[in-house]
Design a binder for these strands. Structure first.
Length: 288
DNA sequence: AAAATACACAACCGCATTATA
DNA sequence: TTATAATGCGGTTGTGTATTT
């Protein structure tokens, strides 16, 4: 049993707002206010939109005096500082930045600041060529693996902690800097990951202990390959998306899923190429 | 020059909290 | 007091634009 929807999705327009819609909403709200009720607003204005969508559009975009983009260094510092203190409470953080919306602050974090933050926090990981040993304490570990709210292992921080903040383009050009795991390592890792995932009694530190036999680097390389080749999206974007349910499940269900002559832009002359084909073949056999 | 990839940000979803009857 | 609806919020996803191949 799902939750009752707030409006009839079939009768409501979705996606980007047109300038006409913006005008209608803006004119109405400037004259009349919300009347204390967003849900009934679409009828009053004639907009074929969900009330929640109207609210969001107004609050994040149409409302006067809001500032978009161009975050200053001072603003960045405030965000970074507050994030370290209180975490992802975007509305609280945005309240400390005049004219900024929580959505904008969140987006800015996800696209720019997160990388900076993790790089600073995991500075000792950055030259990981990548040995995952010795001088890492449990809080580092805890931070690098966690469960997302779907209960899946969340790799996103692991990913970004390996990224050089000065490298903005992670593509096939520089993928060779990521060590490639052997087939056996991938299989072992995947099997272990799966068994750990199924054990919901573990907290993230325990998960790490269980994972200690892994080569941290192999896992990263493995996920890197999977993600770049399955989805063809961008690395930064995927680092957050990999932990979300639909992409993650797709990867688990479909494996690498390479198509012939299409392995996500990987250079056929690179050391990756043959390995990838081999891995792909393995998955095909496994599926049959 | 076209296609693929990377990036940025707008918008949506559903749970949590708050307000209302 | 409590059931229900509205709103707030943060995680996530969709989509347009810029850059690279």
């Amino acid at each position: 049993m799902g939750r009752a929807p707030c409006c009839d999705k079939t009768k409501v327009k979705r996606g980007p707002w047109s300038p006409e819609e913006d005008n209608i909403l803006k004119n109405y709200l400037e004259k009349n206010g919300t009347g204390g009720n967003w849900i009934s607003l679409p009828q009053k204005t004639g907009l074929r939109r969900c009330g929640k969508s109207c609210r969001l559009r107004w609050l994040n975009y149409l409302r006067p005096d809001i500032k978009h983009g161009g975050f200053t260094e001072e603003e960045d510092n405030i965000i970074l500082t507050l994030y370290r203190q209180i975490g992802s409470r975007w509305s609280v953080i945005a309240a400390n930045l005049p004219r900024r919306t929580d959505n904008d602050v969140k987006n800015h974090w996800n696209t720019k600041l997160k990388k900076k933050h993790l790089a600073a926090q995991n500075n000792n990981f950055l030259d990981i060529g990548y040995n995952f040993t010795n001088n890492i304490n449990s809080s580092d570990l805890n931070h690098n693996y966690s469960r997302n709210y779907h209960g899946k292992l969340d790799y996103s921080n692991t990913f970004t902690s390996h990224m050089d903040p000065n490298v903005t383009n992670y593509s096939s050009k520089n993928c060779d800097q990521f060590p490639l795991p052997t087939l056996m390592e991938i299989q072992e890792n995947d099997a272990t990951i799966q068994s750990v995932q199924e054990d919901s009694s573990l907290d993230s530190c325990q998960i790490l202990q269980k994972c200690v036999t892994f080569e941290e680097t192999n896992m990263c390389a493995s996920m890197f390959l999977k993600s770049t080749n399955n989805i063809g999206g961008n690395y930064m974007d995927l680092s957050s998306r990999i932990s979300s349910s639909s992409y993650y499940d797709d990867i688990l269900e479909n494996g690498f899923g390479f198509q012939e002559n299409d392995i996500g832009g990987v250079d056929p002359n690179s050391s990756y190429y043959n390995n990838i084909l081999e891995i792909d073949q393995l998955f095909k056999e496994f599926e049959n």
